[in-house]
Every structure is written in structure tokens, then in C-alpha cells.
Design a protein around this nucleic acid. Structure first.
Lengths: 228, 228
DNA sequence: CGAGAAATAGTTGACTCTGACTAGTCAGAC
DNA sequence: GTCTGACTAGTCAGAGTCAACTATTTCTCG
């Protein structure tokens, strides 16, 4: 479902959330978000913040409180949360927590087109991905350990734990995929190789004669896959 | 890393991929993508396609081949893949497969702010999410079964298997999180409840006297979490 | 103490995306 | 026989995003 919010950018959610503490001006918000590492969870861009604050103000979720000027610096406008804003925050958060949203990670796109690469090329790339996944996991692990050592309660690290869980699951999946593709008995290996006129990625070299393998591109297969 | 492509939209990747089969006009591409269910893997929007095709043409990855007109209908321009386009396709695909990209799923944002909801509210929402996750998994499962029954080779269903794996991992994670929060011995439950001046979500009601729990908002905790 | 680096605070403009709109065609319902 | 709704094919305005730039002020380090 995911109804359209007046302000759709998730960054706005963070802004609303921080304004529950106290009124702030945009730059302070920017600073706070960055310092708290919220840019790890929310796509954050210094420029977008000003945009988002404007939008929130127009939608009535926050209101201009005062404008002060410190020396010759540009003036800073302090914004405060309104009651509608507080409602929006709760409602939005509830939705995000309870309704899994259908998203489009790039890797899904890659997988859906991976047959266009010959297995001799795809498999090393997948192995490389495994290495990178391991690195990312190690990084997050280190981050969590450091935070815990600093006395941060676990509740404030759930996002990172979640990322870890997802990375681990992806690694397992990729391993399984590689296995499926290299084991000559269990499946795709031979078929995949055939498309590209290659020997199967397993040990045995499977011969299927006179099927003119390279005339059939993997995409043309893909095209027909919902038809028969 | 993820270098900036001249055309960044992943939809362009699909376009390039389909043009390896044969030249097509935009509408045909749109139709084909939809019919093959690629809109499940790639964010797809009829309007964007024309945009993307224009960009690809400007970047030299595809070239106008002919323009024909069928009766009084608007004219259709047929595009063909160029050699640079073929290179771009391979290079991009390799990158997507081998380099995991840092993305921002909405649920990560939700988790990073979840402490702003009292546990009495968050826990039911999480349980609801579990139900929804189950539904989505069942849907995909049904889809895969149907496709397999229709003789689609497994290799063309990897994206869906991947989604399944991710949904399963997320469900496991959410279950673990709920458990962590309701078990009064193992952790966050009491602390979380305290912020909101609630009894702990487990069975026992934990009393910590004179700490004036509601004066401390969870965000103000969050704010300080990288300091000490 | 003075030059340059870094932080402060915000604006701008080029590019992208999305959803709604136009406008003709065709098959089948009534 | 003409009405309706779905399909074909594409355009476009408005909203959103991103990266780069401006212009002060403060810190830093020789």
C-alpha cells in the first residue's frame, strides 16, 4: 500500500524525529544527523536537507520559530515541530515498521540479467562479490564492537545488526548459487554454458550435439519464459 | 566505488540487454519488459522508458535506425544497440554482480528510529510485519512453482530465489529482535520501556525508582550515543 | 602572527523522475 | 450501429535530487 506522504523523503522522518527533542535550525540538523551516524541508515545529502525542511514547513509539519543572526554569518532560521508534525512522525514510523515495502536492490536487477554473461565470467565475479561482502561485514562488526565498548545500548544498534544479517544471508545465497552452477549434476551449469557455447563450469565436459547453441541467446530465452 | 555511468538508471541496463536481441522501438521495449515480468526486478515506469532511451541515444549507446508510421498512430522510432552500448552493458553488469552496493532500504531507517516508539506499540507492529513478510514469501513461492511447472529453467528465477532468501532472513531477524525485547532477562526490554515510562514488555514489571524516566527521550539518548 | 585548512551556513542550477495527460485504434457488448 | 473500455504510443509539467559553488569565520601549525 504505502500511501503517498506530503513529504516522501525518508530524510524528513529523521528531521521530524530530531525536532521532537528541541527546535533546531537546518544546519544544526545536518550536523546532528551526520554526527550520530544517521547517514549510515538514511540517504543523506547536505543540499537535500534544506529542500526537505522547506517542504516540511510548507506541509505544516514544522513551523518557523525565530530567525537570528550571529555576526556576519548567514541568518539561521529555527524550526519547531507542530502537532500535525508529531502525528505524521508516529504514523509514518508505524507504517515503515509494520509494512515491508517492495524495493529494488541493484543486485536483483543484476541477477535477473546475469544469464547474459557466460558462466566463465559470472562465477569469478560472484566470488569477488563474496569477498567484498565479507569485508563489509567485518567493517560493520568492528563498528558495533567499538560502539558497544563505548557503552552504547544494543537498542541503538539494531539497524547495524539488521544490515549484518542481510549481508550474511546474501553471502549464503551467493555461495549456494555458485554451488548450483558449478556442480555438474544439480542443474544450471550445463544449460547456462551451452547458451554461450562454452564447456560446462563443472569438471565433466558435457556434449550435446547439433543443437547450434550460440544461435540462441539467453535473452531470447528470457523473452519466452512467460509464454509456454 | 560504483563509478557514475552516463546513464545511471538501471532501467537502461534492461534496455541495453533487450536490444542485444534485435532493434526495437520504445513501446515494444516497454511491452516486452512488462510481459517478461522484469518490472518485478527493475523499477519500471512507462514514462521513464522514453527518457532513458533518449539518454542512451545521446550517450551513443544506442542509435536511431528508422522511423516508420503505422496508419494515423504516432510514429515509432526503432533503436539499435551500438558497439559502445554493448561494451557498456557488459561492464555495468560485471560491476553490479561483483560489487555489493550500499543501499538504503526503508526498514533500516525505521529501525534506526524505532526507539522513538514505546515498545508496547512497536512490538505489535513488528509482529504485523512478520505476517506480511510471510504473505510476500508465499506469493513468490507460488510464482516460482508456477514458473517451474511451466518449464522455466531455474537459472531465470534466481532473482526470485534471492528475494525469498532475503525475506526469510529478515523474518528471522525480526523474530530475534522481538525475542530480545520481550525476554526480560536478555536485554533491551526494560531500558526501552523505561524511556517511555512503561512497564517492561516481559512478564515481570521491573521497578527502577526516582530516575524520572520520561524526562529522557530516546532521541536525546541517540544524540549522545557517539560521544562518551 | 599570518597563511592556509577546515568548519559554518546556505544557494543555485542542471539533471532526473514520476504521474498525469493526450489522442488514436480496435474488439466486443448492448 | 454505436458505446465502452482497454490497448497503443508518446509527451510534458512539476517535483525532487545531487553536486558544485559562495562567502564568512575559526582553527592550526610552523
Amino acid at each position: 500500500m504505502a500511501k503517498k506522504r506530503k513529504v516522501g523523503n525518508v530524510l524528513a522522518l529523521a528531521v521530524l524525529s530530531y525536532l521532537t527533542q528541541r527546535p533546531m535550525h537546518p544546519y544544526e540538523l545536518s550536523r546532528t544527523l551526520r554526527d550520530n551516524g544517521d547517514d549510515r541508515s538514511i540517504k543523506f545529502n547536505h543540499g537535500s536537507l534544506y529542500m526537505v525542511v522547506q517542504q516540511l514547513a510548507k506541509a505544516g509539519f514544522i513551523a518557523e520559530q525565530e530567525t537570528n543572526r550571529d555576526g556576519q554569518r548567514p541568518e539561521r532560521t529555527v524550526y519547531a515541530l507542530t502537532d500535525t508534525g508529531r502525528d505524521e512522525l508516529r504514523d509514518w514510523l508505524r507504517e515503515l515498521v509494520s509494512e515491508p515495502e517492495y524495493e529494488f536492490p541493484h543486485f536483483v536487477a543484476a541477477l535477473s540479467l546475469i544469464a547474459a554473461l557466460p558462466p566463465s565470467e559470472a562465477l569469478p565475479l560472484l566470488r569477488q562479490r563474496l569477498v567484498r561482502l565479507g569485508e563489509q561485514r567485518a567493517e560493520i562488526h568492528a563498528m558495533i564492537d567499538k560502539a558497544v565498548a563505548d557503552g552504547v545500548p544494543g537498542l541503538f544498534l539494531v539497524e547495524e545488526e539488521y544490515r549484518l544479517a542481510m549481508l550474511a544471508a546474501e553471502a549464503t545465497f551467493v555461495e549456494g548459487f555458485i554451488h548450483q552452477s558449478t556442480d555438474p549434476d544439480t542443474g544450471w551449469g550445463p544449460i547456462w554454458a551451452q547458451f554461450h557455447g562454452e564447456p560446462a563450469p563443472g569438471t565433466r565436459s558435457q556434449r550435446t550435439e547439433s543443437q547450434s547453441p550460440q544461435s540462441q541467446s539467453p535473452q531470447s530465452q528470457g523473452t519466452e519464459r512467460r509464454q509456454s
